[in-house]
């Protein structure tokens, strides 16, 4: 579970913009990369992020 407090300090590893919580994902508000959350742990690595189409 990603707490609000944790979400506040997390940022996109690539562009450092804030992230928003999706279903088992964290999405960057700027570069639109979507990172997985596995077993409750966000995997915030550039290689794990896929860029979402509009």
């Amino acid at each position: 579970m990603i707490s609000k407090e944790l979400l506040d300090i997390l940022a996109c590893p690539v562009c450092k913009a804030p992230l928003s919580l999706g279903t088992d994902t964290l999405k960057c508000s700027a570069c639109r990369r979507v990172y997985p959350i596995r077993d409750g742990i966000p995997i915030l690595l550039e290689e794990e992020g896929r860029i979402e189409n509009q």
């Binding site: 944790l6 506040d8 300090i9 997390l10 742990i41 966000p42 995997i43 915030l44 690595l45 550039e46």
Partner: peptide
């Protein structure tokens, strides 16, 4: 808490 991250690209906002 432990989480995966690359030291070269930390997934945290500035000054946190």
């Amino acid at each position: 808490r432990f989480q995966r991250a690359d030291a070269d690209q930390l997934p945290f906002a500035d000054a946190e």
